[in-house]
């Protein structure tokens, strides 16, 4: 189709607005990257704009030599991995039986699950339960209480519905039980939705801090995920260790910036590759949810 001049001008306006959007989205991250690479003195003298001034990697080496940060990064990665695996197992265990059309009691089971989307007992009742279960200050509290999301279960179930029933039926005629069918037919065919949900769960765990804030006291700070550690360091009066403070006041800012980069980069490296899948996942969830 041939476009008129005004149409083409319109296209350019649209492209310009989109570029502006990209700029606004990236600016805060570019800013923090530049600050993490600049020298503390330049930062204090207001000389850092969009390019590192006094380029150095001291902030990064400082973070990597501070055992609190490195441990917290390792710990958060471990909890994220463990939590994601448990969540994926729970989600498939929950979604798969519900696609059987003749599962007895399906209506009641469904209602039992879906109802939890509409109400929640609340923060304090949940806190008191966690306390009674003895999970306070227990690392498992970062994994168990939110390990299964109904919304994600619905996404997975919708995907399972899309797998032809005849595949299941012929496998059953060959004598395969439901568990075999799940393991050897459904899960291998579901890599797109598994990847999407793995991303959702992993991002949720990597970024989460409120559960750790509520359920793990500062005495057990070795169990704190990186986000909570970062929050406490930003908001505590003394901030960075005195040993690091005395070298230069601006160093605190560059170290915070470097920590932000460490806590952000893993996710930024992963999500673009899964774009196709999570778009499909969100759309599926919105239609069925």
């Amino acid at each position: 189709m041939i476009k008129s001049k005004s149409q083409r001008a319109g296209d350019w306006v649209v492209a310009f607005l989109c570029s502006l959007l990209i700029l606004v989205c990236l600016l805060p991250l570019v800013n923090i990257l530049v600050r993490s690479l600049s020298s503390p003195e330049a930062l204090i003298r207001n000389r850092v704009w969009l390019w590192p001034v006094g380029l150095n990697f001291n902030a990064y080496t400082a973070v990597l030599s501070d055992s609190r940060y490195t441990w917290s990064l390792v710990w958060t990665a471990m909890m994220t991995g463990l939590g994601t695996v448990i969540s994926l197992i729970m989600t498939s265990l929950c979604a798969y039986p519900l696609i059987y059309p003749n599962l007895k009691g399906k209506k009641i089971i469904n209602a039992f699950i879906i109802l939890t989307m509409y109400f929640s007992a609340g923060t304090i009742p949940t806190y008191l339960l966690i306390k009674d279960l003895g999970l306070l200050n227990n690392p498992l509290v970062l994994v168990l209480p939110y390990c299964l999301s109904v919304f994600n279960m619905i996404i997975m179930r919708s995907f399972f519905y899309g797998i032809p029933e005849s595949l299941r039926e012929s496998a059953e005629i060959d004598g395969a039980g439901p568990i075999r069918v799940l393991a050897s037919i459904y899960l291998p065919l579901s890599t797109p939705v598994i990847a999407t949900l793995a991303l959702f769960y992993a991002v949720g765990r990597w970024n989460g801090y409120s559960d750790a804030l509520m359920f793990i006291s500062s005495k057990f700070r070795q169990y704190w995920p990186i986000q909570l550690l970062l929050y406490q360091i930003i908001n505590s009066a003394q901030g960075i260790d005195a040993t690091q403070m005395d070298s230069a006041p601006g160093l605190a800012d560059t170290i915070k910036a470097a920590t932000v980069m460490f806590a952000t980069i893993p996710i930024l490296c992963v999500y673009p590759w899964l774009q196709k899948y999570f778009i499909a996942g969100v759309t599926l969830g919105a239609e069925k949810g």
């Binding site: 990209i22 989205c25 923090i32």
Partner: peptide, 23 residues
Amino acid sequence: TQTVAYMPHFLSWIIISQLALQL
């Protein structure tokens, strides 16, 4: 554009708060 626009969704509020504080 879409990829970049989805990016902030993947940041935690702690990170965003730190980005905002420094910006």
